[in-house]
Amino acid sequence: MSDPRLARPDDPPLMALRDVTLAFGPKVIQRNLSLDVRRGTIFAVMGGSGCGKSTVLKAMIGLLRPREGRYIMDGEDYWAGSEERRTEIGRRRFGVLFQNAALWSAMTVGMNVALPMQMFTALDEPSIRRLVMLKLGLVGMEHAVDQLPSELSGGMRKRAGLARALALDPDILFFDEPSAGLDPISASRLDDLILNLRDGLGATVVIVSHELPSLFAIADDGVFLDAKTRTVIAHGSPTALRDGCADPQVQAFMRRENYDAEAGGKV
């Protein structure tokens, strides 16, 4: 690709986890986790239920401090910086779509999108209003600007959450299960949207998902986490893992076959 915003293969990764151990109290979720997210890619964190996908996402957006290991964010050690610095990174660079959209329920959809802009930009109200309409328009939600989150369906809430994640034009977007709970048409529209946002805004996307059609359609890199050994068992794009990974669990996941973890093979 000739777009200067996209990475060349020898560029340093935009985000990197190095030998990271993630744990809640005594409960270790993932250990020896290393991954590289290159600029401009759509990076998928894959794995079965309960393997710690969402926890990895939490670590990457700075909500969970790794017990061990380092998190390199665009060349700087994320956790070595001050709290202000981390907040600054989160505000300027991260846009997060949470699993249940996490819209602020006391505000209308429009106010949800406007709040980050009101708090952190010097834009005047009419400009904010126009940008709110634009962001909602991009996700096809401009008609719901004055509605409350409780009046929306699950898919609409998710799209509104995406509009809010885009509020400050972040260059890294995190999606936690974006297409879970959406019908196939909405899910594929969301996939297109993610691709267009990546191409259009030059954003890097980290996506946690186990929706195979979405993964094959959009992700161009990724890791596969294992719930049992609590570590990464494969690196690569979903398509590459499907076609080239020998691990039986990865194969079973990618081809939707039954897999018995105890027996260590297909059933």
């Binding site: 328009g137 991009l138 996700v139 297109d192 949207l193 267009n196 946002l197 259009g200 805004l201 030059g202």
Partner: peptide, 9 residues
């Protein structure tokens, strides 16, 4: 890219 985004609107 701009054309794509505009197409969504």
């Amino acid at each position: 890219a701009a054309r794509k985004l505009l197409g969504l609107l």
